[in-house]
Amino acid sequence: MKKILFVLMMAVSSITFAQNELKVISGSFDFIRDQTEINVELKFDQTLYQVENWSEDQYLEKRKEDILKNPKKTDEDWQKWLGEWQRFKSSEYLKYFLKGVNSKSKIVFADDSKAKYTLIIDAKWIYAGWHGGIMGQEAKLTSDMKVVETENPSIVVLHVQGDKILGKPQNKDFVMEYGRIAGAFEATGKRFLGKEYKRALRK
């Protein structure tokens, strides 16, 4: 029985590991060797949410119901939550990604840059995690990332996919969905410059 349990635990561990990695689909990091700065953009094209694969409208409707179900909450509380959700989506998630990627790079990754190459991050699936007092579950992010020539975006020099990247466990906004999701963007930034990137720099 112990042997069976051990095998099952190892199988679960392997699945988790595989889902928390980046995979190079095409191209390579060779382009990066003579660069000093990379432009970064974030987009949400048909992003799905939670295990139910809700659209954003469906997810927000569910959150609205959950918030207003609390007798202590009002529409004002919902509007405040929605305002923060939109703020994180429009600016904070990208800031957290940049924080993660720049913590491991001598090359500067920045938004609104005039760099030769642009990294476009397309968020495909987001699991918001949960928080319950002293315990919580980190968010997860599946994304499609392409490095293109800034002046000619049809030329893709690198295509990378991140599969259910588990977010960093804590930040100042971790108790809220958008804070946990921000942690997943930060973790994805850190993972982006992995083994393939280091191998390219050694060439």
Rank of each mutant, 00 (worst) to 15 (best):
M1C: 12
M1Y: 10
K3G: 11
K3Y: 11
I4A: 14
V7R: 14
M9D: 02
M9L: 08
A11F: 12
V12K: 06
S14C: 14
F17I: 09
Q19F: 09
N20Y: 07
E21K: 12
K23L: 02
G27R: 10
R33H: 06
Q35R: 08
I38H: 08
E41G: 09
F44Q: 07
F44W: 12
E52V: 09
W54I: 05
E56R: 14
E56A: 02
E56W: 09
L60E: 05
L60V: 13
K62C: 07
D66H: 10
I67T: 07
I67K: 08
K72A: 13
D77S: 09
W78S: 04
L82H: 09
W85C: 01
Q86Y: 12
R87N: 15
F88N: 06
F88H: 07
K95P: 02
K95D: 08
F97Y: 13
L98A: 03
N102M: 08
K106H: 13
F109D: 01
F109L: 03
S113Q: 05
K114N: 11
A115R: 13
K116Y: 04
K116G: 04
Y117M: 02
K124L: 07
I126F: 10
A128S: 15
W130K: 14
G132T: 12
G132H: 13
G133P: 06
I134M: 10
M135I: 14
K140M: 09
L141G: 11
L141I: 13
L141M: 12
V148L: 07
E149A: 07
E149W: 01
E151L: 10
N152A: 01
L158G: 02
H159T: 08
K164L: 09
L166F: 07
G167H: 06
Q170N: 15
N171T: 08
F174P: 04
G183P: 12
F185P: 03
G189I: 01
K190E: 15
R191Q: 14
G194Q: 07
K195E: 14
E196P: 05
R202S: 15
K203V: 07
